[in-house]
Nucleic acid binder design. Structure first.
Length: 263
DNA sequence: ACGCTTCCCTGGAGGC
DNA sequence: TGCCTCCAGGGAAGCG
Protein backbone atom coordinates (compact mmCIF):
# COMPACT_ATOMS: atom_id res chain seq x y z
CA UNK A 1 0.00 0.00 0.00
CA UNK A 2 1.45 3.34 -0.86
CA UNK A 3 1.77 5.18 2.42
CA UNK A 4 4.38 7.80 3.24
CA UNK A 5 7.45 5.51 2.96
CA UNK A 6 6.31 3.97 -0.34
CA UNK A 7 5.40 7.35 -1.78
CA UNK A 8 8.83 8.65 -0.79
CA UNK A 9 10.43 5.89 -2.88
CA UNK A 10 8.12 6.90 -5.76
CA UNK A 11 9.25 10.48 -5.39
CA UNK A 12 12.88 9.39 -5.53
CA UNK A 13 12.24 7.28 -8.61
CA UNK A 14 10.76 10.28 -10.42
CA UNK A 15 13.51 12.55 -9.13
CA UNK A 16 16.22 10.20 -10.37
CA UNK A 17 14.83 9.61 -13.84
CA UNK A 18 11.85 11.76 -14.69
CA UNK A 19 13.05 15.35 -14.34
CA UNK A 20 14.47 17.79 -16.87
CA UNK A 21 13.38 15.80 -19.88
CA UNK A 22 11.31 17.35 -22.64
CA UNK A 23 7.67 16.23 -22.46
CA UNK A 24 6.18 15.63 -25.90
CA UNK A 25 2.72 14.78 -24.67
CA UNK A 26 0.57 13.45 -21.87
CA UNK A 27 -1.38 10.33 -22.80
CA UNK A 28 -4.42 9.47 -20.71
CA UNK A 29 -5.66 5.90 -20.79
CA UNK A 30 -8.13 6.13 -17.93
CA UNK A 31 -9.70 9.54 -17.46
CA UNK A 32 -10.96 8.47 -14.04
CA UNK A 33 -7.56 9.21 -12.49
CA UNK A 34 -7.54 12.75 -13.83
CA UNK A 35 -8.78 15.75 -11.93
CA UNK A 36 -7.65 18.14 -14.64
CA UNK A 37 -9.20 17.36 -18.06
CA UNK A 38 -6.93 15.29 -20.31
CA UNK A 39 -6.73 17.88 -23.10
CA UNK A 40 -5.76 20.59 -20.65
CA UNK A 41 -3.15 18.35 -19.06
CA UNK A 42 -1.62 17.58 -22.43
CA UNK A 43 -1.79 21.15 -23.75
CA UNK A 44 -0.20 22.58 -20.62
CA UNK A 45 2.67 20.11 -20.33
CA UNK A 46 3.54 19.47 -23.98
CA UNK A 47 7.01 20.83 -24.63
CA UNK A 48 7.66 21.48 -20.95
CA UNK A 49 10.01 20.11 -18.31
CA UNK A 50 9.49 18.73 -14.82
CA UNK A 51 11.93 20.50 -12.55
CA UNK A 52 11.66 18.94 -9.12
CA UNK A 53 9.70 16.36 -7.15
CA UNK A 54 8.38 17.05 -3.66
CA UNK A 55 6.28 14.98 -1.34
CA UNK A 56 3.79 15.80 1.39
CA UNK A 57 2.16 12.83 3.06
CA UNK A 58 0.98 10.50 0.33
CA UNK A 59 1.08 13.16 -2.40
CA UNK A 60 3.89 13.85 -4.85
CA UNK A 61 4.19 17.31 -6.38
CA UNK A 62 6.09 17.86 -9.61
CA UNK A 63 7.29 21.36 -10.33
CA UNK A 64 7.12 22.38 -13.98
CA UNK A 65 9.08 25.08 -15.77
CA UNK A 66 5.93 27.22 -15.87
CA UNK A 67 5.38 29.45 -12.84
CA UNK A 68 2.41 28.39 -10.71
CA UNK A 69 1.93 25.12 -12.57
CA UNK A 70 2.60 21.92 -10.65
CA UNK A 71 1.48 18.36 -11.24
CA UNK A 72 0.15 16.48 -8.26
CA UNK A 73 0.04 12.71 -8.03
CA UNK A 74 -1.76 10.50 -5.54
CA UNK A 75 -1.32 6.76 -5.82
CA UNK A 76 -4.46 5.55 -4.12
CA UNK A 77 -4.18 2.02 -2.92
CA UNK A 78 -2.36 0.26 -5.70
CA UNK A 79 -0.65 2.90 -7.77
CA UNK A 80 3.00 3.43 -8.57
CA UNK A 81 5.13 5.29 -11.12
CA UNK A 82 7.30 3.50 -13.68
CA UNK A 83 10.05 4.92 -15.86
CA UNK A 84 9.98 3.38 -19.30
CA UNK A 85 12.90 3.09 -21.68
CA UNK A 86 12.45 4.15 -25.31
CA UNK A 87 10.36 1.52 -27.04
CA UNK A 88 9.38 -0.19 -23.81
CA UNK A 89 5.71 -1.19 -23.60
CA UNK A 90 3.76 0.41 -20.76
CA UNK A 91 2.91 -2.09 -18.01
CA UNK A 92 -0.58 -3.48 -17.63
CA UNK A 93 -2.93 -1.05 -15.84
CA UNK A 94 -1.02 2.02 -17.01
CA UNK A 95 -3.49 4.89 -16.61
CA UNK A 96 -1.41 7.83 -17.76
CA UNK A 97 1.90 8.46 -19.55
CA UNK A 98 4.20 11.44 -19.71
CA UNK A 99 6.00 10.90 -23.02
CA UNK A 100 9.56 12.23 -23.33
CA UNK A 101 11.29 13.41 -26.47
CA UNK A 102 13.85 10.59 -26.31
CA UNK A 103 11.05 8.02 -26.60
CA UNK A 104 11.03 7.17 -22.91
CA UNK A 105 8.10 7.81 -20.60
CA UNK A 106 6.96 8.20 -17.04
CA UNK A 107 3.98 5.89 -16.53
CA UNK A 108 1.35 5.93 -13.82
CA UNK A 109 0.34 2.36 -13.14
CA UNK A 110 -2.73 1.84 -10.98
CA UNK A 111 -4.77 -1.39 -11.15
CA UNK A 112 -7.60 -0.28 -8.88
CA UNK A 113 -7.80 3.25 -10.21
CA UNK A 114 -8.00 4.94 -6.83
CA UNK A 115 -5.10 7.19 -7.78
CA UNK A 116 -5.42 10.80 -8.90
CA UNK A 117 -3.42 13.24 -10.99
CA UNK A 118 -3.97 16.85 -11.88
CA UNK A 119 -2.56 20.33 -12.24
CA UNK A 120 -2.40 22.72 -9.31
CA UNK A 121 -1.00 26.18 -8.64
CA UNK A 122 1.30 25.18 -5.81
CA UNK A 123 1.81 22.46 -3.21
CA UNK A 124 1.21 25.00 -0.43
CA UNK A 125 -2.17 25.97 -1.82
CA UNK A 126 -3.13 22.33 -2.37
CA UNK A 127 -2.09 21.31 1.15
CA UNK A 128 -4.01 24.20 2.63
CA UNK A 129 -7.16 23.58 0.57
CA UNK A 130 -7.18 19.91 1.47
CA UNK A 131 -6.43 20.81 5.06
CA UNK A 132 -3.65 18.24 5.13
CA UNK A 133 -1.80 17.96 8.41
CA UNK A 134 1.98 18.23 8.73
CA UNK A 135 4.20 15.61 7.12
CA UNK A 136 5.90 13.67 9.92
CA UNK A 137 9.14 13.41 7.93
CA UNK A 138 9.28 17.09 7.06
CA UNK A 139 12.31 18.56 8.89
CA UNK A 140 10.05 21.41 9.95
CA UNK A 141 7.69 19.04 11.74
CA UNK A 142 9.87 16.88 13.96
CA UNK A 143 8.78 14.92 17.00
CA UNK A 144 7.41 18.10 18.58
CA UNK A 145 5.25 18.84 15.57
CA UNK A 146 3.91 15.31 15.57
CA UNK A 147 3.10 15.54 19.27
CA UNK A 148 1.33 18.87 18.77
CA UNK A 149 -0.72 17.43 15.91
CA UNK A 150 -1.92 14.49 18.00
CA UNK A 151 -2.51 16.42 21.21
CA UNK A 152 -6.11 16.90 22.26
CA UNK A 153 -7.63 14.50 19.73
CA UNK A 154 -10.62 12.74 21.14
CA UNK A 155 -10.98 9.84 18.72
CA UNK A 156 -9.26 6.48 18.91
CA UNK A 157 -5.61 6.76 17.98
CA UNK A 158 -5.96 4.38 15.06
CA UNK A 159 -8.51 6.70 13.46
CA UNK A 160 -6.49 9.75 14.46
CA UNK A 161 -3.31 8.45 12.84
CA UNK A 162 -5.24 7.66 9.65
CA UNK A 163 -6.77 11.14 9.53
CA UNK A 164 -4.74 13.00 6.88
CA UNK A 165 -5.82 16.35 8.30
CA UNK A 166 -4.09 15.47 11.56
CA UNK A 167 -0.89 14.03 10.11
CA UNK A 168 -0.33 13.46 6.40
CA UNK A 169 1.15 10.17 5.31
CA UNK A 170 0.26 7.46 7.82
CA UNK A 171 -1.94 4.70 6.39
CA UNK A 172 -3.40 1.50 7.72
CA UNK A 173 -0.27 -0.64 7.97
CA UNK A 174 2.00 1.95 9.53
CA UNK A 175 -0.70 3.11 11.93
CA UNK A 176 -0.91 -0.43 13.30
CA UNK A 177 2.87 -0.69 13.35
CA UNK A 178 3.21 2.54 15.30
CA UNK A 179 0.63 1.60 17.94
CA UNK A 180 2.13 -1.85 18.26
CA UNK A 181 5.60 -0.49 18.90
CA UNK A 182 4.24 2.19 21.22
CA UNK A 183 2.25 -0.52 23.05
CA UNK A 184 -0.94 1.48 22.84
CA UNK A 185 -4.38 -0.01 22.17
CA UNK A 186 -5.80 1.28 18.86
CA UNK A 187 -8.97 2.58 20.53
CA UNK A 188 -7.10 4.62 23.13
CA UNK A 189 -7.45 8.34 22.48
CA UNK A 190 -4.67 10.92 22.66
CA UNK A 191 -6.56 12.57 25.52
CA UNK A 192 -6.05 9.47 27.64
CA UNK A 193 -2.26 9.73 27.36
CA UNK A 194 -0.22 11.84 29.76
CA UNK A 195 2.39 14.24 28.42
CA UNK A 196 5.17 11.68 28.67
CA UNK A 197 3.20 8.98 26.86
CA UNK A 198 2.15 11.37 24.11
CA UNK A 199 5.75 12.43 23.59
CA UNK A 200 6.79 8.80 23.42
CA UNK A 201 4.10 8.05 20.83
CA UNK A 202 5.22 11.00 18.71
CA UNK A 203 8.76 9.65 18.84
CA UNK A 204 7.54 6.23 17.70
CA UNK A 205 5.62 7.77 14.79
CA UNK A 206 8.84 9.42 13.73
CA UNK A 207 11.04 6.36 14.24
CA UNK A 208 8.80 3.86 12.44
CA UNK A 209 8.43 6.09 9.39
CA UNK A 210 12.11 7.01 9.44
CA UNK A 211 13.19 3.38 9.49
CA UNK A 212 10.74 2.47 6.74
CA UNK A 213 11.93 5.33 4.55
CA UNK A 214 15.56 4.44 5.19
CA UNK A 215 14.84 0.85 4.18
CA UNK A 216 13.16 2.05 0.95
CA UNK A 217 9.78 0.73 2.12
CA UNK A 218 10.91 -2.83 1.41
CA UNK A 219 8.99 -4.95 3.93
CA UNK A 220 11.48 -7.82 3.70
CA UNK A 221 14.12 -5.56 5.19
CA UNK A 222 12.04 -4.48 8.18
CA UNK A 223 13.10 -5.96 11.49
CA UNK A 224 11.63 -9.38 12.26
CA UNK A 225 9.77 -8.02 15.30
CA UNK A 226 7.63 -5.69 13.15
CA UNK A 227 3.92 -6.38 13.19
CA UNK A 228 3.82 -5.99 9.42
CA UNK A 229 5.19 -9.51 9.03
CA UNK A 230 2.36 -10.99 11.05
CA UNK A 231 -0.83 -9.35 9.89
CA UNK A 232 -3.00 -12.45 10.19
CA UNK A 233 -5.67 -13.31 12.69
CA UNK A 234 -4.41 -15.69 15.37
CA UNK A 235 -0.75 -15.09 14.53
CA UNK A 236 1.38 -15.08 17.65
CA UNK A 237 3.16 -12.08 19.09
CA UNK A 238 6.76 -12.50 20.32
CA UNK A 239 5.35 -11.86 23.81
CA UNK A 240 3.50 -15.18 23.54
CA UNK A 241 0.11 -13.56 23.04
CA UNK A 242 -2.18 -13.89 20.05
CA UNK A 243 -2.83 -11.08 17.61
CA UNK A 244 -6.40 -9.87 17.34
CA UNK A 245 -8.16 -8.35 14.37
CA UNK A 246 -10.74 -5.64 14.82
CA UNK A 247 -12.13 -2.78 12.79
CA UNK A 248 -10.99 0.65 13.89
CA UNK A 249 -11.09 3.89 11.98
CA UNK A 250 -13.03 1.99 9.33
CA UNK A 251 -10.05 -0.26 8.59
CA UNK A 252 -8.88 -3.73 9.50
CA UNK A 253 -6.65 -3.37 12.51
CA UNK A 254 -4.22 -5.86 14.01
CA UNK A 255 -2.88 -5.58 17.51
CA UNK A 256 -1.67 -7.64 20.46
CA UNK A 257 -4.12 -7.40 23.38
CA UNK A 258 -1.36 -8.40 25.78
CA UNK A 259 1.16 -5.78 24.65
CA UNK A 260 -1.41 -3.11 23.87
CA UNK A 261 -3.75 -3.16 26.82
CA UNK A 262 -6.89 -1.04 26.84
CA UNK A 263 -6.89 1.26 29.79
C1' DA B 1 -15.52 16.88 16.43
C1' DC B 2 -16.27 12.21 15.72
C1' DG B 3 -17.80 7.65 14.21
C1' DC B 4 -20.01 5.00 10.99
C1' DT B 5 -21.40 3.42 6.29
C1' DT B 6 -21.13 3.37 1.37
C1' DC B 7 -18.89 3.84 -2.81
C1' DC B 8 -15.23 3.69 -6.25
C1' DC B 9 -12.16 -0.57 -8.52
C1' DT B 10 -9.52 -5.00 -9.56
C1' DG B 11 -7.04 -9.03 -8.24
C1' DG B 12 -6.26 -12.61 -5.19
C1' DA B 13 -7.97 -15.97 -1.94
C1' DG B 14 -11.07 -19.34 -0.51
C1' DG B 15 -15.21 -22.35 -1.00
C1' DC B 16 -17.49 -25.72 -3.69
C1' DT C 1 -10.19 -26.19 -13.82
C1' DG C 2 -13.78 -22.82 -13.24
C1' DC C 3 -17.17 -20.16 -11.19
C1' DC C 4 -18.74 -17.46 -7.43
C1' DT C 5 -18.31 -14.49 -3.41
C1' DC C 6 -15.73 -11.93 -0.35
C1' DC C 7 -12.21 -8.96 0.98
C1' DA C 8 -8.40 -5.65 0.79
C1' DG C 9 -7.96 -0.42 1.46
C1' DG C 10 -7.22 5.57 0.51
C1' DG C 11 -10.25 8.89 0.46
C1' DA C 12 -14.61 11.38 -0.36
C1' DA C 13 -19.33 11.97 0.76
C1' DG C 14 -23.32 11.62 3.49
C1' DC C 15 -25.60 10.91 7.87
C1' DG C 16 -26.37 11.00 12.76
Amino acid sequence: MPELPEVETFRRTIERGGLNRRITGVETREARVLVTPAEQMDARLRGRLLRSARRHGKHVFLETDIPDVWVYLHFGMTGHPALLLPGEDPPRHTRMLFRYSDGGALALVDPRQFGKAGLIRSPEEFISERKLGPDPMDPGTGVDGIRAALAGRRGGLKATLLDQTVLAGVGNLYADEILYRARIHPLTSALELDAHELGRLARVVYDVLREAVDLDAEYDRYHADWLIHRRREGESCPCGGTLHRIRAGGRTTYFCPACQMRR
